[in-house]
Nucleic acid binder design. Structure first.
Lengths: 193, 193
DNA sequence: CCTACCGATCGGTAGG
DNA sequence: CCTACCGATCGGTAGG
């Protein structure tokens, strides 16, 4: 709603990312906002509500990033776009990405289930990119699509632990792709067929 | 020291993995041990000391796993052994692996620095496996060893979030390797040269 | 947005 | 290993 509310959500996400949800007190958040902790409750219902809001921001950012991937490109190009988009979100919203990836398990009740669904759907969208690549014979027929998706998503999900803001994430995505597409051995790479 | 002490460390690791370090109280741990919380302090100095002990167990398990990798094998075989060994540790000691990977940042003082060093050294040992593979011309000359290590370590480090005890981790490692060695496109794979 | 407060719980200790 | 307790802090509320 208000700008002050948005600032509160961003500040909480930052502290949750730094110290963890249970390691952050409402007094910590209030100090970072420059007010007394009682004052926070005119901007939010509870500490849990702040976690829910940060989490929804993360879910939306990652799904929106995938939405922007071109529909009509080749499988490898689409996966490249998806990985670039994911890493861009991590670098641009490192706190929210961290909370989304690491602190979601402290959600309670319906919000926990909601975010679990959003996370599962995100993984399924990634797996689909690989299955389509195999079906359209752009990726090798015996490719283990499940393992391939798990590998690239692991790198994408682990990124919050080491990615620094300001990194050229498009180039980083390409470095990963250069390995994943042709492998460590990487014999000469003629076109398919 | 005592069997009761070991049980306390294992129980704490399990709760730290489930609820997080700051989400676990000494009363929670005492209840899981079937005693009153005051009784825990004859077995440990503090909650922080329990985290330190779990963490040292994790560091030792991962380093020991790498120590067991054959010295005289090819680079790909050594990396395969290393990944198998890592995933075996994760599956066999899921709680400790989770704490080591996710809760280390709640260590304080010298123990934090100690574990940071152990984690960094572990990553460097992995990078060395790739550099040696390139130097010995078993992996392609233009391989981005840093990105290659980051990729496989991401999968290894992310594993605690989805790996179930009882999984055939050697087979899982091989599924990952099948993709990483020859890539998604995977043209016919003649021997080098 | 502040002050003042609530009951509950925190990690840890004393004394047995 | 227990009971009883410590001061500090927790998330949250009332009333202004």
């Amino acid at each position: 709603m208000s700008a002050r509310h948005d600032e509160l959500v961003r500040t909480s996400a930052r502290l949750f990312a730094e110290r963890g949800y249970h390691g952050t007190s409402m007094a910590d958040i209030a100090a970072a906002m420059g007010v007394q902790k009682g004052s926070l409750y005119s901007l939010t219902d509870s500490k849990q509500a702040l976690l829910v809001e940060a989490m929804r921001g993360g879910a939306a950012a990652f799904h929106d990033a995938l939405d922007a991937v071109a529909e009509d490109a080749t499988a490898v190009d689409r996966i490249r776009d998806a990985l670039r988009a994911h890493l861009r979100v991590v670098a641009a919203q490192l706190d929210v990405a961290t909370v989304f990836t690491r602190e979601w398990r402290f959600l309670e009740g319906g919000a926990l289930e909601e975010i679990r669904v959003a996370r599962r759907r995100y993984e399924e969208r990634w797996q689909a990119l690989f299955r389509e690549g195999v079906e359209q014979a752009e990726l090798r027929a015996d490719l283990d699509a499940e393992a391939a998706a798990l590998l690239v998503l692991s790198a994408a999900n682990w990124a919050y632990t080491w990615l620094r803001p300001g990194t050229d994430t498009d180039r980083l995505a390409d470095r990963f792709l250069a390995i994943l597409v042709d492998g460590w051995r990487g014999y000469a790479t003629p076109g398919p067929g």
